[in-house]
């Protein structure tokens, strides 16, 4: 992951998991946590350096809790990648409470001559999923089935 300066907080890190891949995402607030989780997921899927922001898409999800909302959000992004081939690079959360999310994804349609894919994510799991706040920093671990 690239950092602007040493002081910039890590947005996410990829975590070890024997069979699959996970991320640990961080955020100053929940919105940032959701954005950084999406960044982490797309960094697993593709090399995002060459992805330009040319298209945008609105996303809306409903769920019973913040955790379920996070899986829904990532699941929606994955769905649009799989069906519309949208590689996400920039993410915005417009509205967020425990049951509802409104967001936007900016990116480009996958083009095999320009972009390189790294991993196929089959699904976002609910495995040991818990959003926690530690010392003013929100964090969550998400395991993906790859």
């Amino acid at each position: 992951m690239r950092r602007e300066t040493e002081k910039v907080r890590e947005r996410y890190e990829v975590i070890e998991h024997t069979a699959d891949i996970g991320i640990r995402a961080f955020g100053g607030d929940l919105k940032e946590l959701f954005v950084n989780s999406a960044q982490g997921m797309f960094a697993i899927i593709a090399d995002l350096d060459k992805v330009e922001v040319k298209k945008s898409l609105k996303i809306e999800c409903k769920a019973e809790s913040a955790e379920e909302l996070l899986v829904s959000w990532l699941g929606e992004l994955l769905y649009h990648f799989n069906v519309d081939e949208i590689l996400g690079k920039e993410f915005t959360i417009v509205k967020l409470d425990n049951n509802y999310l409104e967001g936007e994804i900016g990116g480009d349609k996958f083009d095999s001559t320009k972009h390189s894919l790294k991993n196929e994510i089959k699904g976002v799991t609910y495995h040991n999923l818990k959003i926690e706040k530690k010392d003013d920093l929100w964090q969550v671990e998400v395991i993906f089935d790859v």
């Binding site: 019973e64 955790e67 379920e68 829904s72 699941g75 769905y79 089959k122 699904g123 976002v124 799991t125 609910y126 495995h127 040991n128 999923l129 089935d145």
Partner: peptide, 24 residues
């Protein structure tokens, strides 16, 4: 993958964390 995802979501409201140790 989509079938699994759809039905996990559909069953989640029935998840009882007192009875099962993992939401998955």
């Amino acid at each position: 993958y989509q079938v699994c995802d759809d039905y996990l979501k559909m069953m989640l409201p029935y998840f009882d964390k007192e009875k099962l140790p993992d939401r998955q």
